Simulated assay, not measured.
Amino acid sequence: MLPMGAAAQETVTIKYSNWFPGNYFALTDVIEPWFAEIEKVTEGRVKVDILPKVVGTPASQFDVVRDGLADAGWFTTGFTPGRFPVAEFADLPLTSDRASIHAPVYDRIYREYLEDFNVYDGVHVLTTFPLSASHFFVKGKVINKAEDIAGLKLRAPSSNVIEIVKLLDGVPITKTPAEAYEMLSTGVIDGQVTLPSTLVGFNQADLTDSAYMVPGGLTGPVSMIIVNSNTWAKISEADRAAIMAISADKVAAKFGAEWEAQDLDAIKVLKADYNYSVVTASSEDVEHMRTLFAPIEEDWLKRAKEKGYEKPEELLEAYRAALIEEAKK
């Protein structure tokens, strides 16, 4: 028996623009099973077709989907620094280094506080979450304390990381992971702020040789899978509800848990297979960075208000409280 409102619906095929490597864990272990489940819960009325190559570039995925060049895609806000400042609260430094906790909480807070604010006009957000915590990875130098970042040219994947690098007297360079490969291999940059699993998954592990791990994480890059609003409207209300019942914070939790596990494994690989030096920041250095990075939060509050979001302090307070509660589960 068809769900109410679904009887007259023709099959909707969503064309998903994919820029991940074919064997990348996020694609094979989370995205593909989730898309199969979408087809299952809609009894075949909605299908997701993963395109063989990306439409546009990784950085242009929001516009690609909004403009209907593809129906859906993966977008990371850090690829367009400053464009969506209200949503960048997960990017604030030293927020969380537990993606399994961070990811589902972020999606819930987004839906409670920001979904009606229409941050992402022209698209529907199926799920949104910060990735695992990012850390420093450099070539030819062991970072023993935050001050050692001074003078280094580093890929900075978001507005907040740009400020982190600047506050440490480094030189931030804004590029996607794919673009970073050439810059690292040619020595144009000294390293990057990224996830351990990105180095392994995007074949960049041999381009740097040391890690400086910061408890709490430097940032949690905000990512999402979005679908064109017109495409979403073609789906019956009942099927949209069925899709969202297996998406949102539920699939965000799967992404978070998988990323957390992959990052732990990646660190082991970097040490064993690539002879990485891995230094963890001391508690004293973390507190030094917390004080140093305070203006980043103040700037985020200011930018959110400039975008018309009146009470970002309440959002941030609710977010941090929710992270504490999620950690107790």
Rank of each mutant, 00 (worst) to 15 (best):
55 V>Q: 12
55 V>S: 03
55 V>T: 11
57 T>R: 10
57 T>S: 08
58 P>R: 04
59 A>F: 04
60 S>K: 12
62 F>P: 01
65 V>M: 03
65 V>D: 00
65 V>E: 00
66 R>G: 04
68 G>I: 01
68 G>N: 07
69 L>W: 13
69 L>Q: 14
70 A>W: 03
71 D>Q: 05
73 G>F: 00
73 G>A: 02
73 G>T: 01
75 F>E: 09
75 F>L: 08
75 F>H: 10
75 F>P: 10
76 T>V: 13
76 T>F: 13
76 T>P: 11
77 T>N: 15
79 F>G: 05
80 T>K: 11
82 G>R: 03
84 F>N: 15
84 F>D: 15
85 P>K: 02
87 A>M: 14
87 A>P: 13
88 E>K: 11
89 F>T: 02
89 F>R: 04
91 D>P: 11
91 D>H: 14
92 L>P: 08
93 P>W: 02
93 P>V: 01
94 L>C: 05
94 L>S: 05
95 T>Y: 09
95 T>A: 08
96 S>N: 13
98 R>F: 10
99 A>C: 08
100 S>K: 12
101 I>S: 11
102 H>Q: 14
103 A>F: 02
103 A>R: 05
104 P>S: 01
105 V>E: 00
106 Y>Q: 13
106 Y>E: 07
111 R>L: 00
112 E>Y: 09
113 Y>R: 15
113 Y>K: 15
114 L>G: 06
114 L>C: 03
115 E>L: 11
116 D>G: 10
116 D>K: 12
117 F>S: 07
117 F>T: 02
117 F>N: 03
117 F>M: 02
119 V>L: 13
120 Y>A: 11
120 Y>N: 09
121 D>L: 09
121 D>F: 14
121 D>A: 15
121 D>P: 14
122 G>Q: 01
123 V>M: 04
124 H>N: 08
126 L>Y: 04
126 L>W: 05
127 T>H: 12
127 T>R: 08
129 F>W: 14
129 F>K: 12
129 F>E: 06
131 L>S: 15
132 S>D: 11
133 A>G: 12
133 A>W: 00
135 H>W: 01
136 F>K: 06
137 F>Q: 04
137 F>N: 02
138 V>Q: 05
138 V>R: 03
139 K>P: 09
139 K>M: 03
141 K>D: 00
141 K>L: 03
142 V>I: 12
142 V>K: 13
144 N>W: 14
145 K>H: 13
148 D>L: 03
148 D>G: 07
148 D>W: 08
149 I>K: 07
151 G>C: 01
152 L>T: 02
153 K>A: 12
153 K>C: 08
154 L>H: 07
155 R>Q: 14
157 P>R: 02
157 P>S: 06
157 P>I: 00
158 S>L: 05
158 S>G: 05
159 S>W: 12
161 V>L: 09
161 V>F: 05
162 I>D: 08
162 I>W: 07
162 I>M: 11
164 I>G: 13
166 K>T: 15
166 K>V: 06
167 L>M: 10
167 L>N: 10
168 L>N: 15
168 L>C: 15
170 G>C: 07
170 G>K: 06
171 V>S: 08
171 V>A: 09
172 P>C: 02
173 I>W: 15
173 I>L: 13
175 K>I: 06
175 K>F: 04
176 T>C: 06
177 P>D: 06
177 P>V: 05
178 A>D: 12
179 E>I: 04
